[in-house]
Design a protein around this nucleic acid. Structure first.
Lengths: 150, 150
DNA sequence: ATTCAATTTAGACCCATTCTAAACTGTTGA
DNA sequence: TCAACAGTTTAGAATGGGTCTAAATTGAAT
């Protein structure tokens, strides 16, 4: 859909001093051809393999971090032990579906953070993350909440 | 300072069906004797050993989770691969000092989240986390920002 | 005291992520 | 066109939180 951006991506990679290698171009394709996505390294790796793109998991990690450094991706941490990479780098926040591990964007304007206490001296705000954790609402007649112990 | 709470803690443990064992009582002491704290399992374990409290790391993990389940602690995730446990279980948010890994509480009333889009059907808000990431402000004359690659 | 369930523990194990050192590949300059 | 080298990729080892297991220990209730 948004495939015109491929050229733009190559451009940004070049600007960042990243060679448009087979792997990087392929991963960028998977990441940005569709709309906004939230993927883990493992997911993207599987997707690549399924799409007959041979890439090592190490390269997927490298690429995700490089893209993040360059501003093509944003890393989102909502669960210990797992990182999501978000193709939406505009100012926004997230719903986190605890039960399914799914992330859903919330446009930045919809959330107002105000009356902040001043940041500790010598520090600057890098970013504000608002995460709204959602749990599947148990039906009134359903069985007692199954403890979701990991 | 707030040591009167020890009795209260024992009470809450009992109410939750958790025996006040030597280990649990000792860890509770370390956690709640001081003011609000944000500790990792590893940190608490070290602290216990330093305080001549013999506890295994596994027990520290068990205890932190049990305390969390009972509402004595709240788990905070801001970095992939590390969980913090917060002794402040009231409604509040956090500054996260990226460079030092330190968390600082922000009273709940100081942050207003408004105009939320409705939560996806069949889900209920479990909790809202606002994390303000702070970076040490580089002095104007300082060396160029050292990339803080993990 | 006896007994049994709850608890603790050492150590194995898991799993996401990072590291390493070698193989490979774009790009540049002759 | 090709040599040559820096940038990349990669397999596999290594790391590091965190969890699991099975056996030993302990608290509480008789």
């Amino acid at each position: 859909m948004d495939d015109g951006s491929t050229a733009l991506i190559l451009q940004r990679l070049k600007a960042a001093g990243l060679r448009p290698t087979r792997q990087r171009v392929a991963l960028a394709g998977l990441l940005f051809r569709q709309g906004d996505r939230h993927v883990t390294a493992e997911q993207l790796h599987q997707e690549a393999l399924a799409d007959t793109v041979r890439v090592s998991l190490a390269t997927v990690y490298n690429t995700l971090h490089q893209f993040t450094d360059v501003g093509l991706l944003r890393e989102v941490v909502v669960e210990a032990g797992r990182s999501y990479f978000d193709t939406n780098v505009s100012d926004h926040h997230h719903f986190f579906l605890v039960d399914s591990g799914r992330l859903v964007d919330i446009a930045g304007e919809r959330v107002a953070v105000q009356a902040l206490p001043e940041a500790p001296r010598g520090t600057a705000i890098e970013r504000i993350d608002v995460i709204i954790r959602l749990r599947n609402q148990p039906r009134a007649d359903a069985a007692p909440a199954k403890p979701t112990r990991r």
